[in-house]
Nucleic acid binder design. Sequence first.
DNA 1: CCCCTTTTGATAATAACTATTCTTACTTAA
DNA 2: TTAAGTAAGAATAGTTATTATCAAAAGGGG
Lengths: 138, 138
Amino acid sequence: MKETAQILREKGLKVTPQRIAVYTMLRNSMEHPNAEMIYKALEPTNPTMSLATVYKTLDYFKHLGLVQELNVGEPSSRYDAIVACHPHTVCSVCGKVQDLEMDELTELHKKLKQELDFEVEQEQLILYGTCARCRKKA
Amino acid sequence: MKETAQILREKGLKVTPQRIAVYTMLRNSMEHPNAEMIYKALEPTNPTMSLATVYKTLDYFKHLGLVQELNVGEPSSRYDAIVACHPHTVCSVCGKVQDLEMDELTELHKKLKQELDFEVEQEQLILYGTCARCRKKA
DNA sequence: CCCCTTTTGATAATAACTATTCTTACTTAA
DNA sequence: TTAAGTAAGAATAGTTATTATCAAAAGGGG
């Protein structure tokens, strides 16, 4: 995996320990954390970092296309370091947000973009339901 | 169109002027309003209605499947009286939220649901971009 | 038409995020 | 190498959307 500092530099961002910490954490995480979760996760290693910095950092990253923001119906936004368009599932039992591989869908979307009188820049497909694990438990 | 009061009764809700007002407004609106917009729209005809009532009413409606809540990346939720699953477009210039007719997509989704190890209850597809009107202006 | 339960309106409280302000840290230029 | 200027961070105050609380009013079955 490409070095985090290198990526930040290429985006024209000043490289700071806080930014490295947030971006590295997001790249290594599968849980699509929100700002609070990122803050808590980094607290042990970066005890002086402020929650406001997490918010500002995520906002920079979002505008530079380093992360995407997800609205999954919770009060707080979640973040994903995989910026390519891909669908997500949200389990209404355990709350887990997961990535979904779905090339078919991506292909269809591309075709539809051309047919629509609407120029698509970004899209979000979210499936709400019950994940395999929670279904087995029930 | 079926009478609003009748629909509320069938859902087991007490029929109140406030609920009739909110649901009728939503059924006649194409703009996918948020709570504040509904409140403002109803102010002239229902001057004593409280914003809290709008929020509570929308919450009831949502749980009973009378409306669906949309998260389009704005701080406040929007609401749609068309509860059947359908995609939405969000124009990043004028902010307009519109319904999208897209049977192809709905069909594909049905097929995909069966292949997934995830039981889909609800889904949201949101396309962000620039609408036809705003594109012409530019 | 009355009583019981729900709903409403007013407003306080909360949660998530944003703005502000002061301090610290790079970075360039003499 | 250092002084100056700009950018970033920490702490915290402020804002906004939403939820909770509670007394008063209103629906609706009997």
